[in-house]
Amino acid sequence: LETFPLDVLVNTAAEDLPRGVDPSRKENYLSDEDFKAVFGMTRSAFANLPLWKQQNLKKEKGLF
C-alpha cells in the first residue's frame, strides 16, 4: 500500500485525496512512523480498539 505524508491526508476532502486513497481509511496510508506519531500507538494496538474509539481518534486527528 502506498503511503502519503500526513499533511496530504489530514483534513482533506475525499475529492482532494491522491488517486486510490480510500477516504474512510486514511490512516492506512500513513507510514508506520507517522501513524505512531499521530495516534501514539502501533497499528495493531489501534486495530484492537473498539470501532467507536478508532473513529473518535480519527476525528480528533483530522483523518475521518
Score class of each variant (00 low, 15 high):
G20R: 07
F39A: 00
F64W: 14
L17K: 03
Q55I: 15
T3L: 08
Q54D: 00
K36E: 15
D7C: 13
D7F: 09
K59H: 09
L63Q: 02
N28M: 15
R19G: 11
F35H: 00
R25I: 06
P50Q: 03
Q55E: 15
G40C: 09
P50A: 06
E15C: 13
K36M: 14
W52T: 09
E15F: 01
F4C: 07
Q55C: 13
G40P: 00
D16F: 10
Q54P: 00
E33H: 09
A45Q: 14
V10M: 14
V21F: 07
D32H: 07
K59M: 11
L51W: 10
D32F: 05
L57S: 02
F64Y: 15
F46Q: 00
L9R: 02
A45K: 09
N56D: 15
E60F: 06
E15P: 09
S31N: 09
K58C: 06
D22P: 03
F35A: 00
V38S: 05
F4E: 03
K53Q: 14
F46D: 00
A14S: 11
L51C: 14
V38G: 01
G62W: 02
P5K: 02
Y29V: 02
L9H: 03
P5S: 06
L6K: 05
G20W: 12
D22W: 02
M41N: 00
A14H: 12
N11A: 08
T3Y: 14
V21I: 11
P5H: 04
G20M: 08
K26D: 03
K58Q: 02
T42V: 07
E15T: 09
R19Y: 10
F64N: 15
K53R: 11
F35M: 01
N56T: 11
Q54S: 02
K59G: 06
V8I: 12
R19M: 14
K61R: 08
E27T: 03
L1H: 14
E33C: 08
E33D: 13
T42Q: 07
N48T: 13
L63T: 01
V8H: 08
P18Y: 01
D7T: 09
V8Y: 15
S31E: 04
F46Y: 07
L30P: 01
E27C: 04
T3W: 13
Y29M: 03
N48S: 15
W52Q: 13
A45P: 00
P23S: 08
G40E: 12
T12M: 11
Q55T: 14
D32P: 07
E2V: 14
N48I: 12
L51S: 09
F46W: 08
F39C: 01
N56L: 11
Y29C: 06
K53E: 15
R43M: 06
S24Q: 13
Q54A: 04
P5L: 04
L6M: 09
T12Y: 07
L17A: 04
L9C: 05
L57I: 10
K61H: 10
F46S: 00
E60A: 11
M41W: 01
F4Y: 14
D7K: 08
Y29T: 02
S24N: 13
A37C: 10
L63P: 03
L1E: 12
R43H: 06
D7R: 08
S24Y: 10
K53S: 10
T12R: 10
L57P: 00
Q55V: 14
V38N: 02
P50H: 03
V21E: 02
L49M: 09
M41S: 01
N11P: 05
V8Q: 12
K58S: 03
E60H: 07
A37K: 13
K26W: 05
A45V: 11
A13Q: 11
L9T: 03
A37P: 00
E33K: 10
T3R: 10
L51R: 12
E2F: 09
V38T: 10
L63D: 04
E2M: 14
W52H: 10
T12W: 09
D32V: 06
A47S: 11
F46R: 00
G20E: 09
D34H: 05
W52Y: 11
N28A: 15
N28L: 14
T42H: 07
E60C: 09
K53C: 14
G40R: 07
P50D: 08
V10C: 09
A37F: 14
N11E: 08
F4L: 09
D7Q: 11
V38I: 09
K36Y: 15
V38Y: 04
P18E: 04
A14L: 12
P23T: 07
V21L: 08
S31D: 07
L9K: 02
D16I: 06
T12A: 11
L49T: 02
A14G: 09
W52D: 13
K26C: 06
